[in-house]
């Protein structure tokens, strides 16, 4: 079995983020920090500073879509979810599968002819696009792989980092 299979399957498992609507804010705990990539093989687990992001962004829906019951920002989503109430699960992994392309998931998608959200992102894609996308847009925040999660020893071997600085392939080809 490939070494990184476990990384894919278990990567980026995220602790439940229980951000809820302002009304329910008093009773539902909002985590200050969340450990992401808990079972990462190629990249180490790291702490996501949730509190800092709440402070600087203030808008839950920027990351949590309509799940927290706040105003829906995306006009395409608003067509149906304008008046959607908060969902039971607000964590990323509550909706986004860690194995979006598994034979089981693909078969389920094919069997369900009524399903609308056919293009729902997997967990890894959703998180990376959300983080990197926003960090790029804001012009601050980490965007490099190791800026968030340092590589493990296994990861270093996977990316053949011992070959760093060697002659690139094209130099030989030309």
């Amino acid at each position: 079995m490939s070494s990184y299979k476990h990384f894919i399957v278990a990567a980026l498992s995220i602790g439940a983020i229980s951000v809820s609507s302002p009304a329910a804010l008093q009773c539902a705990p909002v985590p200050d920090s969340i450990t992401l990539n808990q079972n990462g093989k190629l990249f180490s687990p790291f702490t996501f500073n949730h509190a800092q992001h709440i402070q600087s962004i203030k808008e839950c829906a920027d990351c949590h879509h309509h799940t927290t019951g706040t105003l829906v920002l995306d006009p395409n989503c608003a067509r149906c979810h304008q008046n959607s109430s908060p969902t039971a699960v607000v964590s990323c992994k509550g909706c986004h599968s860690a194995t979006p392309f598994s034979p089981e998931n693909l078969a389920a998608k094919r069997a369900d002819k009524q399903r609308y959200h056919l293009d729902k992102m997997g967990l890894k894609g959703a998180m990376h696009q959300s983080c990197i996308g926003c960090h790029n847009k804001m012009g601050n925040g980490p965007t490099g792989c190791q800026d968030c999660h340092p590589r493990t020893k296994e990861g270093a071997a996977f990316y053949s980092t011992n070959r760093k600085g060697a002659k690139p392939a094209h130099a030989e080809e030309e």
């Binding site: 792989c145 996977f158 990316y159 053949s160 980092t161 011992n162 070959r163 760093k164 600085g165 060697a166 002659k167 690139p168 392939a169 094209h170 130099a171 030989e172 080809e173 030309e174």
Partner: peptide, 17 residues
Amino acid sequence: PEPDTSFDDPSVFEHER
């Protein structure tokens, strides 16, 4: 086989491969 340069080396983008 092992690559000529590491997989996080952005210098490979200088040429179309």
